[in-house]
Simulated scan of single mutants.
Amino acid sequence: MKTNNLFIGLLLFLLIPIYSCSNEENDDPVELTIAKTMLDVSYGTDAQQVFDLHLPANRSSNYTKTLILVHGGAWIEGDKADMNYAVDIIKQFLPDYAIANVNYRLASAGNYAFPMQIDDIDAIVQKLKNENYGISDDFGFVGTSAGGHLSMLYSYGYNANNDIKMVCSIVGPTNFTDPNYTNNQAWLDLYYNLTGVNYADNPTYYEQLSPLFRATTSSVPTILFYGNADPLIPTSQGVDLHAKLGQLGVYNEFNLYNGGHGDWSQTDTLDAYTKLIAFIQNKF
């Protein structure tokens, strides 16, 4: 469940600045005036528990917000490098935001995705809050595919301290109880491999993994991007969440393009990019 690089064509139009790199984890206050990149910052003991942190110049713990990028890959593959194109675009058009481009532990046989991956997302948020990076405690998510699911699930179900202020899902699953999935044996097999729980034995468990069922009246502003011919994510996944958020009175934007799992035309890709940047500027 790994998207094509949604905005990759747009990089032809960008002039990408060069930033200094460091593996240091603490920011000296003297350095807050300059941009800084920290690669493979560890937030746990596993080799996969790392993120890249891109810090803007003139940042402050009073006002600098952070966008957390979460890659896709069906919860079993993928890497933060898959989101590097988004890092470049954000640096160019949202230069005052910090960016955390994250890895999380990938599921494998007997190593279940849940709650492991949500625990990793929480550990990342806590690390960003507790270290002296010169950023505020305001965070937003941009996730693709499985990463979109994790971003929404955390934002709706685990945002007890109101640290998360917005979420973007690019072709992310929202409802694991959708008949398009539960009537498909391949998906049911994937469910079991990800959780160790048979859907038929405990459908309520799968509701708890579904952002659709975790959304409340206090959920954060949400922007959604889906394709009308996606072989992995039925249109109902986006349509139903859009309707649910509307019923709850939660601000949200829903965008549906011609095409599949992020492989849209350059015109639609540019439209999605423009809307996402505007959403971040206006709602975060």
Rank of each mutant, 00 (worst) to 15 (best):
Asp122Val: 05
Tyr226Val: 04
Asn23Thr: 14
Lys283Glu: 12
Lys80Val: 12
Leu12Gln: 14
Asn252Leu: 06
Asp163Phe: 13
Asn183Glu: 13
Asn132Ser: 14
Glu25Met: 02
Ala186Gly: 08
Leu150Pro: 05
Met152Leu: 15
Asn84Tyr: 14
Thr216Gln: 04
Leu276Lys: 01
Ser20Arg: 07
Asp178Leu: 11
Lys127Asn: 06
Asn62Thr: 12
Ser169Thr: 03
Gly259Ser: 00
Ile233Pro: 12
Trp264Val: 01
Gln237Ala: 11
Asn103Met: 14
Ser218Asp: 14
Asn198Ala: 13
Ala35Thr: 03
Ala113Ser: 12
Thr195Arg: 00
Thr235Glu: 09
Ile18Gly: 00
Glu131Leu: 10
Ala86Pro: 03
Ile233Gln: 12
Met38Trp: 15
Tyr63Arg: 05
Asp96Thr: 14
Leu248Ala: 08
Asn198Ser: 15
Val50Leu: 08
Glu207Ser: 09
Pro221Asn: 01
Val142Phe: 15
Gly78Ile: 08
Ser20Tyr: 04
Lys91Gly: 05
Tyr156Trp: 07
Thr204Met: 07
Leu150His: 04
Pro234Glu: 04
Tyr19Asn: 04
Thr45Phe: 09
Ile121Gly: 02
Asn84Gly: 04
Thr177Tyr: 04
Ile34Pro: 07
Gly73Glu: 07
Phe225Asp: 01
Gly78Pro: 13
Gly246Val: 04
Gly143Lys: 00
Ile90Gly: 09
Asp189Gly: 11
Ala74Pro: 01
Phe284Cys: 07
Trp264Cys: 00
Lys36Thr: 09
Asp122Leu: 02
Gly227Ala: 00
Pro56Asp: 00
Arg105Asn: 11
Phe225Asn: 02
Ile8Lys: 08
Ala160Met: 11
Ile76Ser: 12
Asn101Tyr: 12
Met38Thr: 08
Asp178Met: 10
Ala272Ile: 02
Glu25Cys: 03
Trp187Thr: 11
Thr235Ser: 08
Gly172Lys: 00
Asn103Arg: 08
Ile18Ala: 02
Glu131Met: 08
Pro231His: 01
Val239Ala: 06
Leu106Arg: 06
Gln48Gly: 13
Leu248Asp: 01
Ala229Ile: 01
Gly227His: 05
Ile76Phe: 11
Gln117Lys: 10
Asp268Lys: 04
Asn26Thr: 14
Tyr226Glu: 01
Ala200Gln: 14
Asn175Ser: 11
Asn184Cys: 08
Thr217Gly: 13
Asn183Gly: 06
Lys244Leu: 10
